[in-house]
Amino acid sequence: MQGKHLTQKERFYIEKRRDNGVNQSTIARELELPRSTISRELRRNTDAAFNGVYSCRRAENLARGRRQKARPDNVEPHIQDVILQALSTHLP
């Protein structure tokens, strides 16, 4: 199964449903997502400094930052060269 990123709309839905006391399994069913996706989202993006309250805005900013950090253009050029050279030896 191919992963996908949660949308802002989905994060907003998670926030509102959590505020209403709905559990993770129910939210996952309603969004037609694996329960693990909801669990991971809440674990990664719930701030303990705010008494464990989930914020969709904060979650979106954190996720955007993680995606940006993981981009290949953030890798130093000499590391990119090593990776490309190693990959080229495995091509048919």
Rank of each mutant, 00 (worst) to 15 (best):
M1P: 05
M1G: 11
Q2I: 03
K4A: 14
L6T: 15
L6R: 14
L6S: 05
K9R: 15
K9F: 15
K9D: 09
E10T: 12
E10I: 14
R11I: 12
R11C: 09
Y13D: 06
Y13P: 00
I14M: 08
I14C: 10
K16I: 09
R17P: 01
R17T: 06
R18H: 11
D19N: 15
G21L: 06
V22M: 06
N23H: 08
N23L: 13
N23I: 14
Q24D: 08
S25C: 03
S25K: 07
T26L: 05
A28G: 09
A28H: 10
A28N: 03
R29V: 02
R29P: 02
R29M: 11
L31H: 08
L31E: 08
E32P: 00
L33W: 00
P34M: 05
P34N: 12
T37S: 14
T37D: 07
I38V: 07
I38L: 04
R40H: 11
R40F: 11
E41H: 13
R43T: 11
N45H: 12
N45L: 04
A48M: 05
A48R: 04
A48G: 10
G52I: 03
G52F: 01
V53Y: 09
V53I: 13
V53Q: 13
Y54Q: 04
S55H: 04
C56Q: 08
R58C: 01
A59Y: 00
E60M: 00
N61G: 12
L62V: 02
L62A: 08
R64I: 05
R66I: 10
R66H: 09
R66S: 12
R66V: 07
R67V: 01
Q68G: 10
K69W: 10
K69L: 05
A70Y: 15
P72E: 01
V75N: 03
E76P: 02
E76T: 01
P77K: 04
P77H: 03
H78Q: 04
I79C: 01
Q80W: 00
Q80R: 03
Q80K: 02
D81I: 05
D81S: 07
V82E: 01
V82A: 02
V82Q: 03
I83D: 06
I83T: 10
L84N: 03
L84S: 00
Q85L: 04
A86H: 05
L87H: 05
